[in-house]
Design a protein around this nucleic acid. Structure first.
Length: 860
RNA sequence: GCGGGCGUGGUGGAAUUGGUAGACACGCAAGACUUAAAAUCUUGUUCCUGUAUAGGAGUGCCGGUUCAAUUCCGGCCGCCCGCACCA
């Protein structure tokens, strides 16, 4: 027996695959059904990490499996190549972001190829390719024409470390998603994508995404945050002379209007700002509100603060007056920045009212309470109930009362029922160099003008880029921003902001689909016909961290592309199937001085861990996501060299369910390596007249048993892959391997079982399967071999083993013909010695027989 | 606080229309082969009592429905993820 030599086998097959161009998607005129498999494309950081291996291994299982099932599979790869790390690298080490990026792409391509993924590299591109961002600029202009792009001065999230603006989605717990720096608020001129235009559609579309994780759909729905309510004006009882407008409030509970006891306006409300001009106390109060941080703890524990303006408004129904307070818990960014407070039925209003001694009048009566005695103490009642103390609303339930109140306000011409969304427009201006330039010029006479399409691309200058000075290099570049207005010819200023890099990843999948081989179109973003045929992506695989960033932006973009007539995709949904995989984790090692130590530098010595060189004692800490900073990383290159790509792939797919984290362990890798060897030992020992694809129809006895086992396993393996439960498929493959190992004869049944085994491991360990396939004399490439067919006759057994329970406890079992009659089963069960003993002295009350399943005797 | 998910041996996990709990793998133990080790193979491995046959307990905890519950229902406890003063 020869030891399986991955170092020799794997490159050999990779060469054959590559020379045969076997992973290229077939032409558009192929009549096979299409399948578009895609994993979130990588950022070229310079290194492949285990997270990549797991991500792409999963997508590769799907791609190879679908290919075997007869689909025309598109499984492309490219690079999400614009972004901050390139600028940081240039800042720290000199060099140029562009060179750094392309060097990294070169460096990462080799290990990706060494992993043997069935990728169509013919459509490869990087988002920083001029050809790509040129088309992105064209899309920007199309979006502009369509009203999906606009510019406004707005309070924006400023990341003081990355020195750029962030979108709301990119602020996590008040901190920048990349830098972790506490985000500041600044007023700036900004470009926005009008994602709110699709708020309703993006929300409704979630219901159609039945192959998306529930969790992601929920997160997006919450992010869009639809609420229905009433927007209404309160007329002044005592109006400030400095302010002309009336106070507009938004509420989802207009049914509680009769319980209103004050008006709360935000510290950032225009009225507050006006009042503050002539009132130092209000100015102080605003400063006090601003001091409270934006972290979640700060917000959650912040005390309610209020300031009585002394102004009053009229209640629309009763005409009574309500005081207007400035309240710190009212947010300017939601609704109208003003509320009416109904303390009895809103906890925040109640806390506020208790603190400032405002009236608390219940108007919704919980079931079982008496209207005469009901009172709200320190817990607001937000549930359903009958309205009371509310004139024309009395006796109505919550929902009808809401509708009635809205109708009355509309009659009084004081407001209207409206829908609010939490979703904000997507701010895309970034004050960075390494991104897609926004194709716009500013002319003093002609205003803000789009760059004519014929003048695209607005290319990033390569020279004179100094990233060591703070600020945007494009802004101080000697020539970039100086441009003549194409309309009036006068000197004008080119826009120096670049687009948020999330724009780059919002349509790359369409370009993959809409480019034929190396002929990615240069005159349009993608070929409409081709892209429309491939889209949507049938199976998308990536990390859950993109649940509301990338995955929401992409859904917006495809709708925009659709409405600009670039893509024929009625649903607007880019990804019909989504899978979010878990992370690869590893224990953290630290030495005596508390320094992190790489796992590769740790050796076991007796029952303690030592540093491989310094011999310092190492202690093992938590098992967490692999990260460079904690040094708990294992380099895929080392694993490929030591054990082979198949072993690495097999390991990250075994044991843990794909959606859960998997802990990388040395013993686990060795286990995977042993298994690969075991398969090769099994296959290399076989030499027979049979070849893969043989069906042993004449098998009987133990040969028939093996056939049955193999087909049952095949069925479970297939179901596992279909359901994205690769770990269960892996377990079945182990069982099948064990069964074949025990079967000593070299006959047709063994060959049939082996060829099932080899083809089912092919999506997981493609090199090994090719080697085995070839060794056994299989036709062509295993990659092209069809997925084995389950013979339904092999799934049924003539004889079944039924457990026999007495009072629900298993006491014995019964081997019996599958179609035995119930009374026959019962008679045999009763005759069983163990059962006789168990029911001795008891009276039989009932006998339950579930054919093919179980027998339960109830006795007492 | 709101929304979602999860809790099973020493470990990862299986059992998803209620029907033999612990498949498969890791680890561990014993044995075979070997001068020895590695590799490989065989056997065992939920816990408790017992030499064994066998018996009892057991899927976070308490209760319920059922002939039968890891699975369904109610109430707790714990952990993870997301959102968060959203009116």
């Amino acid at each position: 027996m020869t030891r399986y030599n991955a170092a020799d086998v794997e490159p050999r097959w990779q060469k054959i695959w590559s020379e045969g161009d076997v992973f290229k998607a077939e032409d558009d005129n192929s009549d096979k059904p299409r399948f578009y498999a895609l994993e979130m494309f990588p950022y070229p950081s310079g290194r492949i990490h285990m997270g990549h291996v797991r991500n792409y291994a999963m997508g590769d299982v799907v791609a190879r499996y679908k290919k075997a099932q007869g689909f025309n599979v598109l499984h492309p790869m490219g690079w999400d190549a614009f972004g901050m790390p390139a600028e940081n690298a240039a800042k720290e080490n000199g060099g140029h972001p562009k060179d750094w990026t392309y060097d990294n792409i070169d460096a990462m391509k080799a290990p990706l190829k060494r992993l043997g993924f069935a990728l169509d590299w013919s459509r490869e591109f990087a988002t920083c390719d001029e050809a790509y961002y040129k088309q992105q600029q064209a899309i920007f202009l199309k979006f502009w024409d369509k009203g999906l792009v606009y510019r406004k001065t707005a309070k924006v999230n400023w990341d003081p470390v990355d020195n750029t603006v962030l979108a709301n989605e990119q602020v996590i717990d008040g901190k920048g998603w990349r830098s972790g720096a506490t985000v500041e608020q600044r007023d700036m001129d900004q470009w926005f994508f009008k994602i709110t235009h699709y708020a309703e559609e993006l929300l409704e579309g979630l219901d159609t995404l039945d192959r998306w994780p529930e969790k992601v759909r929920t997160m997006q729905a919450n992010w869009i945050g639809k609420s229905e309510g009433l927007q209404m004006r309160f007329e002044w009882a005592e109006q400030p002379d400095i302010y002309e407008d009336e106070i507009e409030v938004y509420t989802t509970r207009p049914d509680t209007l009769y319980g209103a006891s004050f008006i709360g306006i935000s510290a950032d409300h225009p009225l507050t700002k006006e009042l503050a001009k002539n009132n130092n106390d209000i100015e102080d109060f605003r400063a006090q509100c601003a001091k409270i941080g934006t972290t979640e703890e700060a917000v959650a524990t912040a005390p309610k603060l209020g300031f009585d303006t002394g102004l009053t408004v009229k209640h629309p129904f009763t005409g009574k007056t309500l005081p207007v307070w400035i309240a710190n818990f009212v947010l300017m960014g939601y609704g109208t920045g003003a509320i009416f407070g109904c303390p009895a039925h809103d906890q925040r209003d109640l806390d506020f009212a208790r603190k400032y001694d405002l009236p608390v009048s219940p108007v919704v009566l919980p079931e079982g309470e008496d209207a005469k005695t009901y009172a709200v103490e320190n817990e607001a009642y937000t549930g359903d109930g009958k309205l009371f103390n509310s004139d024309f609303l009395n006796g109505l339930d919550k929902v009808p009362a809401i509708l009635a109140a809205i109708a009355r306000i509309e009659e009084l011409n004081l407001g209207a029922g409206t829908t609010q969304y939490r979703l904000r427009d997507w701010g895309v201006s970034r004050q960075r160099y390494w991104g897609c330039p926004i194709p716009v010029i500013h002319c003093e006479d002609c205003g803000v003008l789009p760059v004519p399409e014929a003048d695209l691309p607005v290319a990033l200058p390569y020279d004179n880029i100094d990233l060591t000075i703070p600020g945007n290099p494009l802004d101080r570049h000697p020539t970039f921003k100086h441009v003549d207005c194409h309309k009036c010819g006068k000197p004008a200023r080119r826009e120096t902001d670049t687009l948020d890099t999330f724009a780059d990843s919002s349509w790359y999948f369409a370009r993959f689909a809409g480019g034929q081989g190396k002929n990615l179109p240069d005159d349009r973003p993608f070929d409409k016909t081709s892209a429309s045929q491939w889209m949507p992506v049938d199976q998308y695989v990536g990390g859950v961290e993109h649940a509301v960033l990338h995955l929401l932006y992409a859904r917006f973009f495809t709708r925009g592309l659709r409405d600009c007539g670039l893509l024929d995709l009625p649903s607007g949904e880019p990804f019909s199937g989504l899978f979010t995989q878990g992370m690869v984790t590893h224990a953290v090692f630290t030495d005596e001085d508390g320094n992190y130590v790489m796992p590769a530098d740790v050796v076991e010595d007796g029952n303690q861990l030592l540093h491989i060189e310094s011999k310092k004692i190492i202690s093992k800490g938590d098992v967490i996501k692999m990260s460079k900073s904690k040094k708990n990383v294992v380099d895929p290159n080392d694993i490929i060299e030591g054990y082979g790509a198949d072993v690495a792939r097999w390991f990250v797919l075994s044991d843990s369910p794909p959606e859960r984290d998997v802990e990388w362990t040395e013993s686990g890798v060795i286990g995977a390596w042993r298994f690969a060897n075991k398969i090769w030992a099994l296959v290399s020992a076989v030499s027979s007249d049979f070849t893969p694809g043989h069906i042993a129809t004449d098998a009987e006895g133990s040969a028939l048993e093996l056939r049955k086992f193999a087909h049952k396993a095949l069925e479970k393996i297939t179901t596992g892959i279909d359901a994205f439960r690769f770990n269960t498929s892996v377990a079945q493959i182990y069982e099948l391997t064990n069964a074949i190992g025990k079967y000593k004869a070299n006959d047709g049944a063994k060959m049939e079982a082996l060829s099932i085994l080899i083809r089912t491991i092919a999506p997981f360990m493609p090199h090994l399967s090719e080697e085995c396939w070839a060794h056994l004399g299989g036709n062509g490439l295993c990659y092209h071999a069809p997925w084995p067919k389950v013979d339904p006759k092999m799934l049924v057994d003539d004889e079944v083993t039924l457990p026999i329970q007495v009072n629900g406890k298993r006491r014995s079992e019964l081997k019996i013909a599958k179609d035995a009659a119930k009374d026959e089963i019962e008679a045999l069960a009763m005759a069983d010695e163990a059962i006789k003993r168990s029911i001795d002295g008891l009276t039989i009350r009932k006998v339950i027989i579930v054919p093919g399943r179980i027998i339960n005797i109830v006795a007492s």
